[in-house]
Amino acid sequence: MNRAPLDRRNRLLILLTAVLLLTTVAVGATLHAADRAGEKDRARSGGPAVRSGKVTLDAPGRGVFRNMAWGPHRDEIASVAADDPSGPRTASGVRCLRFHAAGGTGVCLQAVRGGLRDRYRAIVLDAHLRELRRYDLAGIPTRARVSPDGHTVAWTVFVSGDSYAGTAFSTRTSVLDVRTGELDRDLEAYALFLDDRPHKAADINVWGVTFADDTHFYATVATGGTTHLVRGDRESRTLRALHENVECPSLSPDGTRIAYKKRVQGASSDAPWRLYVLDLRTLRESPTAERRNIDDQAVWRDAETLVYSLPGDYGSDLWTVPADGSGAPRVTMTAALAPAFTGRS
């Protein structure tokens, strides 16, 4: 009389056991395939070694940058020994699209995935990569800088368009006092002076801040089809033009020179820039030995050497060239972007 319920129970147990067995096999096969794929990716990439660990922005003898090597640590802020840039990397777990650091402060421009489209935000970090402040961004991150002592940060986003190469783009550049939280949301609100005369126009764009100190900075202003190097003053809220055809300036550690992108005649409209250095005392400009197109805001590794990115197998490699026009370009770090070094840049 009890055999029917018992048979049904046994059949149910057998069915459940079979389902669990098949699920285990499927999961195991998936994990094995993923491991094999990961091994193949690593073997194919031949990229630099990256491991998780502690990263700080004030450790002596270290450089920090966005790691571009394929794998679980891609896009994380990483550090490497400054005297061995091709050596093992330590990844922080903090992911950024754009990054810069100075004076123990970092600024990280991030993508926030999800929803109908990506959103973006700026995160101000302390020396241990802990979040201090957070701000929503109005567009796609493109440039970021920190003042030499870490008290002021700046960022630029594309509000429309996604390239400086053409003319159909609009930027927004913000400057933040880290200590007080005072935020200048758009430097286009500053008074602009061209040839010492006030200039107002609907087509003004500002981008590429580089700091002299907490109050003074340099940047690019575009208006009327021309780009200008401007000196900015946060107290007077002014931008004063100094020199034409300057984009994405980077101030030398001693404050006397600007490295920048210059549009050169005869170059392709898709690759118009070459890397130049401007003497701020004489306004004499000179080309570097790098003859390829540079679409980056260079960084001064020291008083004599510029670091900049060029396309590479992983998206970006870092190159160096002497700032005085001598020497030749050379790769300093593969699979890397947005470097920061001790001192001003």
Rank of each mutant, 00 (worst) to 15 (best):
E76T: 00
E76L: 01
A78Y: 03
S79R: 02
V80M: 09
V80H: 08
V80A: 14
D84F: 04
D84R: 15
S86W: 07
G87D: 06
G87W: 06
R89C: 01
R89T: 01
T90G: 01
A91K: 02
S92I: 00
G93M: 02
V94R: 05
R95C: 00
C96F: 02
L97S: 14
L97H: 13
L97C: 05
L97M: 08
A101F: 07
G104H: 05
T105A: 09
G106K: 12
G106N: 11
G106P: 09
V107E: 08
V107P: 08
V107G: 06
C108Q: 07
C108K: 09
Q110C: 08
Q110D: 13
A111N: 10
A111M: 06
V112H: 09
R113C: 10
G115S: 11
L116F: 09
Y120R: 06
Y120D: 12
R121H: 04
R121P: 04
R121D: 07
I123N: 06
V124Y: 10
A127T: 06
A127H: 04
H128T: 09
H128R: 12
L129P: 01
L129N: 03
E131H: 02
E131M: 07
R133E: 09
R133Q: 14
R134D: 07
R134C: 04
Y135L: 10
L137N: 10
G139W: 14
G139M: 09
I140W: 15
P141E: 14
T142L: 15
